[in-house]
Simulated assay, not measured.
Amino acid sequence: MTADEIIGYDELDALSARLGLAVDASELHGSLCGFLAGGGTLDGGSLTSALHLDAAGDTASASDQAMLQRLVRQSEAELADPELGFEPLLPADDRPLSERAEALGDWCRGFLGGFGLTGAGTHAKLSDEAQEILRDIETLAGSAFDFGDESEDEDALIELHEFVRMAAMLLHAECAGGRNRPTGGTLH
């Protein structure tokens, strides 16, 4: 894997297991995205320290640390992407629907935890829309999914995924938006 390659679900899940983290790839990515969306910065610290994650495994190797740093850069860039290219990191579409739905709930739980670490959720300055988005993500995080018609369930999961994707970008724009703008030149 080169330094420019996008980190996928399986690679991040393997890293989480190697480090002995008590979260899967979706929850780890959600935690990071919530932290970034809330305006959190690593300021040279480690991702696991910033997110208050205890690593039960061996100390992270240099390549594992590099992967975590790439994940941070990747997530920052995607959340601030003017083309709206952000995607929550979830299992591939060929995985069972129940696994993908559970991973979306894990991502939402992680997002809320990471966002909460920044203190942005307690800010009275959050717009009504942002507060409503957080409540909706909280509802998704605590949901148990019932499955019936596979086609309808797949459509519902796609809609929830799209809501979460847009919600993360909206919260990022509101809480951390100015921090990621280029410092030189004029914005058009």
Score class of each variant (00 low, 15 high):
Leu51Pro: 06
His52Ala: 15
His52Tyr: 12
Asp54Asn: 14
Ala55Arg: 12
Ala55Leu: 12
Ala56Gln: 14
Gly57Asn: 11
Gly57Ile: 10
Gly57Trp: 14
Asp58Trp: 13
Asp58Asn: 15
Thr59Gln: 12
Thr59Pro: 05
Ala60Gln: 07
Ser61Thr: 15
Ala62Asp: 03
Ser63Asp: 12
Ser63Ala: 10
Asp64Tyr: 01
Asp64Gly: 05
Ala66Leu: 12
Ala66Glu: 14
Ala66Phe: 10
Met67Cys: 14
Leu68Pro: 08
Gln69Ala: 09
Arg70Tyr: 07
Val72Arg: 07
Gln74Arg: 05
Gln74Tyr: 05
Ser75Tyr: 01
Ser75Gly: 02
Glu76Tyr: 02
Glu76His: 07
Glu76Asn: 04
Glu76Gln: 13
Ala77Lys: 13
Glu78Gly: 05
Glu78Lys: 05
Ala80Ile: 02
Ala80Leu: 01
Ala80Glu: 03
Asp81Val: 01
Pro82Asp: 02
Glu83Tyr: 10
Glu83Asp: 09
Glu83Gly: 01
Glu83Trp: 07
Gly85His: 00
Phe86Asp: 01
Glu87Asp: 14
Pro88Met: 07
Leu89Ala: 07
Leu90Val: 06
Pro91Ser: 08
Ala92Tyr: 07
Ala92Cys: 00
Asp93Tyr: 05
Asp93Asn: 11
Asp94Pro: 12
Ser98Gly: 04
Ala101Leu: 00
Glu102Lys: 12
Ala103Tyr: 15
Trp107Cys: 13
Cys108His: 04
Arg109Asp: 09
Gly110Asn: 14
Phe111Lys: 06
Gly116Trp: 10
Gly116Ala: 14
Gly116His: 10
Leu117Glu: 10
Thr118Phe: 07
Ala120Arg: 06
Thr122Ser: 12
Thr122Ile: 06
Thr122Arg: 14
Lys125Phe: 00
Leu126Arg: 12
Leu126Gly: 05
Ser127Thr: 12
Glu129Asp: 11
Ala130Thr: 04
Ala130Phe: 03
Ile133Val: 14
Ile133Lys: 07
Ile133Asn: 03
Leu134Pro: 01
Asp136His: 09
Asp136Trp: 07
Glu138Lys: 08
Thr139His: 08
Leu140Thr: 10
Ala141Asp: 00
Ser143Glu: 14
Ala144Lys: 15
Asp146Ala: 15
Phe147Asn: 01
Gly148Thr: 14
Asp149His: 05
Glu150Lys: 09
Glu152Cys: 00
Glu152Trp: 00
Asp153Met: 04
Asp155Val: 07
Ala156Thr: 15
Ile158Pro: 00
His161Phe: 13
Glu162Val: 12
Glu162Ser: 11
Phe163Ala: 06
Phe163Tyr: 15
Phe163Glu: 06
Val164Pro: 11
Val164Phe: 13
Arg165Trp: 07
Arg165Lys: 15
Ala167Ile: 03
Ala167Thr: 02
Ala167Gln: 02
Met169His: 02
Met169Ala: 03
Leu170Gly: 00
Leu171Trp: 02
His172Tyr: 05
His172Glu: 07
Glu174Asn: 03
